[in-house]
Design a protein around this nucleic acid. Structure first.
Lengths: 352, 352
DNA sequence: TTGTATGCGTTATCAG
DNA sequence: CTGATAACGCATACAA
């Protein structure tokens, strides 16, 4: 039997505290504290000794106790509706890595449609004294979030119209934001599609209340108008593959054919492509041209090979980390803003 | 200008503490503490009053201070190599949701190949006093992890051979584990493939050091042998789409054709499928049959429509949460184990 | 450079 | 059922 060693009751070692190390090193516990604080003054050999002993006995400063006095938890909250959607997960991945190198840990929170749950979650979050919080979910207003957090200023990703962020004017709560200019990339997409002969466009939307979605539709409408093209047909969507699939089918079976479809996100575009190819027998890009948004990893897979509008992931994460660090350095500064551009990644779903 | 309201220096409200509420309610701060602890005895109307005032002033118990005395951080660590791989992200998503309802927050850690970074990260993690930690990464040994955590017992996902977990015997550290019996599902997969005429199998591996991968290959070999089929051709892989694509191409261009490919994970299977279809002009399932592992959401998308071995996500997460709760109730109990089955999900990549 | 005293916000202990 | 007091482990001001 392989479990022999594990059958006995387990015995964990005593927790080593600063006092433990202090006694062993023959110094005060304050010296131990200083040894772990690089900018504190302490004789080098003393620090080395303390650090060595700490390693031997497995001592690590307790973040909770430290947070209690420094008022810095080294915890950054991330609120998302879905961890498992590709876009979110790529963002969380990169963000976690970046935060780790800066000495922060990522605390994950998932929103739910049930409002009461959100209420409970907010007070719960507040208890952790987050140093910062990034809201990728838009169903939680800035006031709510700012109220639920003391000493932390929330960060929102917003989508300005012609350079002006609409959300900022409507709210009295202070929050920092990452402005994503979607117009550039969408403009490039429409230009390319038109160049290859598209005349009748459709827009497969995302979740109705999503600000990203609303601004994408608005930008698309404006760009089409500027180019003398007709308004887009709107296909109802919610950022999921399944809805995209059925909604696209509905559109074409109603006889409302189009020759260019712009999807609010890549996953939706995959649904569009599969509906066109496998359910309607249409060719891409010959019969219909498709463009997505996000440039997730799967967009490069050969089955889809999707032309899409990209928000650079590294830029995005760097901007977010910059916002967090700047805010922590200056907690009372006015709202801070970082701006990001978008651009078209050309692959195989637009062409002739 | 829309930012007018946000230009002024911000002023955050004073943090409300238990004493604040106590004074307002005319009770001791202990009463406030009790009001937030459901099982503590406190006159109902007194509790209601305290809770009401707390809500008004926005008071929430400080988790750091609470953790300091209760020795429970309500933090569960999750260590993953990649948040953005679909399997991981689905797991994290479900786990976070489940933990949230149990009152725990999920702390995310990403591993890196750089060993020194991992070292730093471990001591860093220790500082947070996690109540539990789940290691989805296998490059961190149980001893290392158990050592880096006091009062928390790590949880590993392991893959027993014929019902016996190999990892348990090799380690002196105590850890709880989730045993996944992969044999059942793989057996069903091979049976189906053989029934549709497969005679020459290939195995597209995952990362070399992955225990899941090693056991999947071992199980496949044994099952093929039991059925009188030849050993599988091994295709080098690492769980990624790109490697799967190029490795599959290499195999077939070397003339080593096979008629059945079992991939260590779904994403790899997607690479196999795209290589066969778009680079080699082969039909699936007519020419080659393909089976994956995981049953991620994308496996159901029409472009792939992948037959795959599934580990039920809900079962998996429930088992993990059960392990955490049981361990917290009984910190010194011997190693605990939960077991999970796998089964085949039949879609379109196996057939005739 | 070093040590002493104090406080961070909470819960456990013990008395009433 | 309730309140005073003492921890919990650390960092900071201050004095040496």
């Amino acid at each position: 039997m392989s479990d022999g060693l594990n059958m006995k009751e387990i015995k964990r070692p005593e927790r080593a505290t600063a006092d433990t190390v202090a006694k062993m090193a023959g110094v005060s516990r304050v010296a131990v504290s200083r040894a772990f604080n690089p900018h504190a003054s302490l004789k080098k050999e003393k620090r080395d000794l303390i650090l060595k002993i700490s390693k031997d006995v497995g001592y690590t400063p307790d973040m909770a106790a430290r947070a209690l006095v420094t008022r810095r938890s080294h915890l950054v909250g991330v609120i998302v509706p879905d961890v498992c959607s590709p876009w979110e997960s790529q963002e969380i991945d990169a963000l976690t890595t970046a935060l780790q190198t800066e000495g922060f840990a990522t605390l994950l929170f998932k929103t739910r449609t049930d409002q009461s749950m959100d209420e409970r979650l907010l007070t719960y979050m507040k208890g952790f004294n987050l140093d910062s919080i990034i809201a990728f979910a838009e169903n939680i207003g800035p006031e709510t979030l700012a109220n639920a957090l003391d000493r932390a200023v929330p960060i929102y990703v917003t989508y300005p119209q012609n350079g002006v962020s609409p959300i900022a004017s409507g709210s009295t709560a202070v929050f920092d934001r990452l402005d994503v200019n979607q117009q550039t990339g969408i403009g490039q997409a429409v230009a390319l599609m038109q160049a290859y002969g598209c005349t009748k466009f459709a827009y497969l939307g995302g979740a109705k209340t999503s600000l990203a979605n609303i601004e994408r539709e608005r930008a698309l409408r404006q760009i089409l108008k500027d180019r003398g093209l007709p308004d887009p047909v709107i296909i109802a969507g919610d950022f999921t593959y399944e809805t995209a699939l059925t909604s696209t089918l509905d559109l074409f079976k109603m006889g409302e054919g189009v020759d260019g479809i712009f999807s609010a996100n890549d996953v939706g575009a995959f649904g569009v492509i599969d509906a066109l190819r496998f359910k309607l027998g249409l060719r891409i890009p010959e019969d219909v041209k498709v463009v997505g948004f996000d440039d997730i990893a799967q967009a490069g897979w050969l089955s889809y090979n999707l032309t899409t509008v990209k928000i650079d992931l590294d830029d995005r994460v760097r901007a977010l980390v910059r916002l967090i660090l700047r805010r922590l350095k200056n907690p009372t500064a006015p709202a801070m803003v970082e701006t990001l551009e978008t651009r078209l990644i050309v692959r195989g779903t637009v062409g002739s």
